[in-house]
Amino acid sequence: MKERKKVRFGMDPDSGRLALGSWQIPMPRSRAGRIGIGGTLIIAGTLGFLPILGFWMLPLGILVLSHDLHFVRRRRRQAVVWWQRRRQTRGRDR
Rank of each mutant, 00 (worst) to 15 (best):
R34K: 13
D68P: 02
L60S: 07
S22I: 12
R90G: 12
R94V: 10
F49K: 00
W23N: 13
E3G: 03
L60G: 08
L50P: 01
A19D: 02
T89M: 10
G91V: 00
M1F: 09
R29T: 14
A44L: 15
I42D: 06
R4A: 14
R76P: 00
S15L: 03
R94W: 02
M27S: 04
Q84H: 07
A32C: 02
W82Y: 10
I52G: 00
Q88S: 11
G33V: 08
K5L: 11
G16Y: 08
A79T: 10
Q84T: 12
W83R: 09
R17S: 12
V72L: 01
I52V: 13
L50E: 05
D14M: 07
K5Y: 03
P28G: 09
L41E: 07
G16T: 03
T89P: 00
R74K: 15
I43Y: 08
D93K: 12
W83N: 05
R86G: 10
L63K: 01
I52H: 03
F55A: 06
R8Y: 10
T46W: 13
A19L: 11
L69F: 08
G54E: 02
P28M: 05
A32N: 10
G45W: 05
V7Y: 01
L18S: 05
G16F: 08
R76E: 09
A79M: 10
V64K: 04
M11C: 03
S66G: 11
R87D: 08
